[in-house]
């Protein structure tokens, strides 16, 4: 029964958060000076006041803001974000849909690498706390945390793309992509994604590995570790079986929290490497003042974060039997 209540409140808070996201996004569009019909009216000498009023009526702009909000909300629940203002006038959702997989893939691959690098680094730093290894990794991850991702990307392009050309420096596929076999295609994609993933991984390493380190340190100081050691269990087993299990728990939350950072970071990285993902679309929309696309991306980015947090909560719930009671 208790679980049922918890579940109910979780859903309720999700709905409230979602509504809040839409309110903030809707408010952001209304920051724009002027009204969306200005382009056809104020800037057009032939348009009279009547024309403007008629246009406002067509777009529903004559109604109070609250009614406009409700109407807009009704549409976005059906993934109807309107049409792009750019030349092709395609539905915003279609444009987002075709770019979403690349950004998701890029983020998931990077997250995977961050995970398999940061966890061992964090464990070793904690086990050998204050050793030279700990100090070295601390400096290493702090540099990753402080380096501007786009600058690192430029340096990598210069080094691995131009001076010793190992990886292609832009785009997602080579010119002869369509002629390649399946494995050739995969290899080509991997080559193109190598540099962006490197940048993401290095810059994202710090959060998780530092967190892992402090979580591990905390667990290692607890009594049950002392007991396991006193029982005569080898140190390796104590670390890898007893301590790791407990130290990993809070890390699940951190993975969920890192979603917005990764999505936000893809704007710059995708622009530099000319990858046709969501971030690049967003950047182009900002430069072209393509409001429907900006808004659609904003809402979607927030929803992805919400989903990330939910998955993290769920993972926590499944992993920690103490919460389920």
């Amino acid at each position: 029964m208790k679980i049922f209540y918890k579940f109910f409140f979780k859903i309720l808070s999700l709905v409230i958060t979602f509504l809040g996201i839409t309110v903030v996004s809707f408010w952001v569009i209304h920051l724009a000076p002027g009204s969306p019909t200005d382009l056809q009216t104020t800037l057009n000498p032939k348009a009279s006041t009547e024309v403007r009023e008629r246009l406002n009526k067509i777009y529903g702009l004559d109604k109070p803001l609250s009614v406009q909000y409700i109407n807009w909300l009704k549409r976005i629940i059906h993934f109807d974000f309107g049409y792009s203002l750019s030349g092709d006038h395609r539905p915003v959702w279609d444009k987002i849909k075709e770019r979403l997989p690349l950004t998701l893939a890029l983020n998931l691959i990077s997250m995977f690498f961050i995970f398999i690098l940061a966890i061992p680094l964090g464990i070793l730093s904690a086990v050998y706390a204050d050793s030279w290894f700990d100090k070295l990794t601390t400096i290493f991850v702090f540099i990753g945390f402080s380096v501007p991702g786009f600058w690192l990307a430029l340096l990598l392009m210069l080094w691995l793309g131009i001076y010793c050309p190992i990886f292609p420096i832009s785009g997602l596929t080579s010119l002869n992509f369509s002629e390649l076999s399946f494995w050739g295609k995969l290899w080509d994609l991997a080559n193109h994604l190598a540099l962006p993933v490197m940048v993401f991984t290095f810059t994202g390493l710090a959060g998780l590995s530092r967190y892992m380190r402090s979580s591990m340190l905390e667990v290692l100081g607890q009594d049950f570790i002392l007991l396991a050691r006193a029982k005569g269990l080898p140190y390796k087993i104590v670390i890898l079986k007893h301590a790791l299990k407990n130290a990993l728990l809070p890390v699940i939350t951190i993975l969920g929290l890192s979603v917005p950072g990764l999505i936000g970071g893809s704007v710059i990285i995708e622009s530099i490497f000319a990858l046709p993902g969501l971030g690049q679309l967003f950047y182009q929309a900002v430069m072209a003042r393509d409001y429907p696309i900006i808004l659609g991306n904003l809402v979607l980015g927030a929803i992805l974060t919400l989903v990330g947090n939910l998955l993290a909560d769920l993972g926590y719930f499944l992993a920690d039997p103490r919460i389920r009671k």
Binding site: S13, I16, T17, G20, I21, V24, V28, I29, L31, A32, P33, V259, P260, G261, I263, G264, G265, V267, I268, F282, Y283, A285, V286, R289, Y291, I294, L295, N297, L298, G301, A302, T305, L306, N309
Partner: peptide, 23 residues
């Protein structure tokens, strides 16, 4: 605190870019 949660959901770079696009 609800408001804090909502704001935390937006990728900050997205939000900043969106606002800058309008200003």
């Amino acid at each position: 605190m609800r408001f804090v949660d909502i704001m935390l959901c937006f990728p900050s770079f997205f939000l900043i870019l969106a606002v800058i696009a309008f200003l």
